[in-house]
Simulated assay, not measured.
Amino acid sequence: MGGQPDYYWVYGPIGPNAGSALGNLLGDPLLLVEAATNAAVKPLLPLWLFGTLLLLPLRSATTLCLLPLLAERMLSDNPNHWSIAHHYDALLWPVLLTAVLEVLGRLYLRSGTHRRAARGLGTAVVAGSLLCSLLLGGISVLTPAYWRPSASNAALVRGAQRIPDGALVEADNQVVPRLVDRTDVVLVDATPRGRDYVLIRSDTRTFPFQTAHEQAERIELLLAHGYRRVWAEDGVELLHRESDEPVPGARIPDGNSTPVKEIVPRDVGHNLFKG
């Protein structure tokens, strides 16, 4: 569905593709354990998911629905999948909370003593969840500065407003959604595309670059081969192509183009709470 067979295959430790991975696991099931524990953050993920709910989901068969989703993350060799900083928890929590409600409901339907215990457990789960939410995100949400965009992100929006409708554009990952409805835009990445406008940061790393230095190098490459800087603010630059001079390494997207597979920076994946 992604268009390139191996683009979303991030399970190198168990095999180069699904078929070989299945064969490897049948021959050596311990590969599952090795792949799920080959980074310190990985075992912390289920500990966080189940521990914050007092391990109650483990008493419900509904939790079995969670296994494919959890395995998809823990067996991955993409460090972005191991933390709770991104959206990868989104499909797990409905299953976890359904399992908790099921367990609490069963306890409540028993004798009076168990009903009091169920109420106590329910209160503890709610209190624990609220406390975790407050510590991780609630304090930020209640801080006025949280709702103000960074100087860099605000500059990206201003730069995007300077790009005319219908233009061919390469743009920073954070601002592409603001351009898709009125321009022909692709993500600015490791390969120059020779487009009319390039909206890029120069001093803040952004996906899919490895370092901010790579972005600065890209800007210098384009300025040396037919582009002109038409606007710059807060580390964001808008370049416009002024000539047909070829850019070294450029590839023009067409129907046969394939996406560039992400290479995750080395400093990603060492913290459960930070992506």
Rank of each mutant, 00 (worst) to 15 (best):
M1W: 14
G2A: 08
W9H: 02
V10I: 15
Y11E: 02
G12Y: 06
I14S: 06
G19E: 13
L22F: 14
L25N: 07
L25F: 04
V33Y: 15
A36C: 11
N38D: 15
A40C: 08
A40P: 10
V41T: 03
K42T: 04
L44G: 06
L45D: 07
L55K: 05
L58C: 08
A61L: 13
T63C: 11
L64K: 09
L64F: 11
L70R: 02
A71C: 06
R73D: 03
M74C: 11
N78D: 09
P79A: 01
N80L: 15
W82M: 01
W82K: 03
S83D: 02
A85P: 08
H87M: 15
D89L: 13
L92C: 15
W93T: 11
L96E: 03
T98A: 15
A99E: 03
L101D: 12
V103C: 01
R106P: 12
L107W: 12
L107E: 07
Y108V: 13
G112M: 14
R116E: 13
L121N: 07
L121D: 04
T123H: 10
T123Q: 12
A127S: 02
G128T: 04
S129G: 12
S129Y: 10
L130Q: 06
L131I: 06
G137C: 09
G137K: 09
V141A: 13
L142A: 09
T143L: 12
A151S: 11
A154E: 07
A154N: 06
L156A: 06
G159D: 00
R162Q: 08
I163R: 02
G166K: 07
G166Y: 01
V169P: 03
D172C: 01
V176G: 06
V176K: 04
D181Q: 15
V188T: 10
R195S: 00
S202W: 13
R205A: 00
F207H: 11
P208E: 02
F209Q: 00
F209C: 00
Q210M: 10
A212V: 07
E214H: 07
V230N: 00
A232T: 10
E233K: 06
D234W: 06
D234P: 07
G235F: 03
V236N: 04
E237P: 08
L238V: 02
L239E: 02
R241C: 04
S243M: 06
D244F: 09
E245Q: 13
P248C: 03
G249A: 03
S257G: 04
S257P: 04
T258G: 11
V260P: 12
V260R: 14
V264S: 08
D267E: 09
N271T: 11
K274G: 10
